[in-house]
Write a protein that binds this DNA or RNA. Sequence first.
DNA 1: AATGAATGAGAGTTCATTCAT
DNA 2: AATGAATGAACTCTCATTCAT
Lengths: 218, 218, 218, 218
Amino acid sequence: MMHLAIMRRMSSIDTPFELHSTSTAAGTKYARKKVAAIAAAAQVFAEKGFHGATTQDIATVMGIKQGSLYYYFKSKEQALQDVCEYGFENYVQQMEKICGKAQPFEAKMQMIITSHLTTYRQKNNAMKVHNDQRLYLPKERRQHLKELGTRYRQMLENTLQEGVQQRTIRADIDTHFVAYSIIGMCNSWGAYLVRDESLDLFDTIQQCADLVLRGVLN
Amino acid sequence: MMHLAIMRRMSSIDTPFELHSTSTAAGTKYARKKVAAIAAAAQVFAEKGFHGATTQDIATVMGIKQGSLYYYFKSKEQALQDVCEYGFENYVQQMEKICGKAQPFEAKMQMIITSHLTTYRQKNNAMKVHNDQRLYLPKERRQHLKELGTRYRQMLENTLQEGVQQRTIRADIDTHFVAYSIIGMCNSWGAYLVRDESLDLFDTIQQCADLVLRGVLN
Amino acid sequence: MMHLAIMRRMSSIDTPFELHSTSTAAGTKYARKKVAAIAAAAQVFAEKGFHGATTQDIATVMGIKQGSLYYYFKSKEQALQDVCEYGFENYVQQMEKICGKAQPFEAKMQMIITSHLTTYRQKNNAMKVHNDQRLYLPKERRQHLKELGTRYRQMLENTLQEGVQQRTIRADIDTHFVAYSIIGMCNSWGAYLVRDESLDLFDTIQQCADLVLRGVLN
Amino acid sequence: MMHLAIMRRMSSIDTPFELHSTSTAAGTKYARKKVAAIAAAAQVFAEKGFHGATTQDIATVMGIKQGSLYYYFKSKEQALQDVCEYGFENYVQQMEKICGKAQPFEAKMQMIITSHLTTYRQKNNAMKVHNDQRLYLPKERRQHLKELGTRYRQMLENTLQEGVQQRTIRADIDTHFVAYSIIGMCNSWGAYLVRDESLDLFDTIQQCADLVLRGVLN
DNA sequence: AATGAATGAGAGTTCATTCAT
DNA sequence: AATGAATGAACTCTCATTCAT
């Protein structure tokens, strides 16, 4: 469930029309249902894609009528934006925690991959939606996501750079390229993890880490 | 351009009325335009996704009117199926050639990656569509694609298995897992290659191959 | 401001629950807010038209929430009816005073036009709404308005008739027709006065009176 | 019927999507039906107002399905714009013809009023729509209409100016003001003519002209 | 006295699809 | 071989209205 992670950020949630009376919006009924709305939208977008999904689908998952959805989202596009932002913000936060701690390179890489894949397995559809559907947002609405993405990639590249300095990883490595590769591979495994529940999470993490670190050669 | 590859398979193309079958279908005006139709659909689906694309979009790219499209595709769904099949068939054929030749493991791996990424860079939108949009086809219509996919993965796994037997690659490698990983990483780079024209193809190929073979560790 | 005039009639205002009727309704908080509600509705209907206006618009002008509006109006249609009736009742009352006094024809005509145009310039949106939007009310709800209108036109016609008898105006005049013409011209100038604040009120009144009385010929 | 007048201008009609093959679009089936579409929209907008009318209403009058309407109008707003423009363009053209001919002032004024009121009586709903509903168009879409309106008013003012120079009308007349007054009064009578079929057209014209020229005074 | 939350009906618009020509 | 014209179903979004609190 994405709920815990998202609720951590709920203090910043937007309220409908005007500000609510309570200063911390986190506890409001509205905030609680908005979380549910984002979760529902994430699930539906992940399954059917942005254009393939209907607002009716989302409303059905929430157990409300279709028109009522607009109490929580100003538009379908806004729903996509919210899903992407909450999903990705949460993920980048986790990344910051991991990269903030002083740890040997291999441990960090392991944690990064663990975080990435675990996020998917926890049915964090928001993450999948961010990866696959964010390009359907008009550029203006992707501003924030782009910044988050850059921050995330930079943390990953920095980690690799540290590895180079620690002489743990090869000096001839192009950290920029490797960062992209890791993200790509993990996203691809993430999609499998979402689709196939029988796939073992920890096994997958081990194998990913092993492949990245040692390659296939003898 | 995908044209050459696709035209090779044109002999099996479906003709709209039985009448047409008198001549070799491959050379027919119909067959030639059907190729163009598939290419147009591929381009549009790649850009906007299946559900985000309209038949009008495809017709516009072809320079014909919307209604005329139905001379080439029985339905929008059929267009997606055609794009996926022609795109992927073509790719698997190439794979067969590569794997058919007796070659050392590393050379083969290099060629596989080269083939995969080159396909993308040549703006083979059909390939992108197959990877990103095929799941929007109903299961029945994915039968053929699934077979092709299995064949393809098996060739990749066999190649890896050969590598193990040649002692070129580690014995503890899970070939199934590595095959998926390579595909995932390459697809992700493929998407970048399509989006960013300034990205150097051969550089990308080298780096991918290097990462897969040697990993990042020192 | 229409307030004074409207408040004079407030004694007849409908109260939402019978309970309220203990005190004189005119001074009730409810009555005061109902006036504000009518004024808000008048403003919004004048600007956007009945169908183009939303209950949200009216609520916003009042500074209350959309749902709360139904404490003052049973329906949007009722709001239109209230606006039209209060606006027009007020105007017809003024007309009654003017026509009641014994005065020479030209002075009366001057006062009638002054009354009409001043009403508009005072941003009496209710009047504009009555003129432009009343036809969107179902016939049954226009009963009262129709009676008022007839009364008003009759007073105008009577005034003209007096003018004929006093030999102040031509005997071959069709008073019925002229009455309609004056109303039409004044309404049209009223709309300009509302739209263009820089238009001088007294100048307009003079010109209108002059045109009606003397025509353009030399 | 507005058909004749509108068809005169049909050579400039816009075609759907792309240019038609024939150079004169006037004869096309599309052009013919677009005329019908504009007439239908004019009728419905005149009756119910822009916001009160539905695209379904218009389609019903045309005898087509609601969705098919969009073959002729890109949007409901475009329909309003088309109605206003065709209606008013036509009217201004007529005005140009009247004012172009050298004629004594009184005759011209008579013709102007005749033209104005006849336009209404011919059920030229487009004219009514232009007068009552054009303000619901966003400013950008009113550009053309504004220019037409200015041209029209100028012709009327010029005519009055000529009258002054010919000493036919009083020198102390404010031509600007009188022009507006005539338009206002005629529009108001136009609305009556549309609503009440029993009203005699020529009688109304006579009375209007008489009132404007000679006023009511003895 | 007012509001948050929801609803249901309908609006405008889009679009895949059909078919006579 | 292609098109103009139309359709019908679905979709997003709006809005008047209700009602428990």
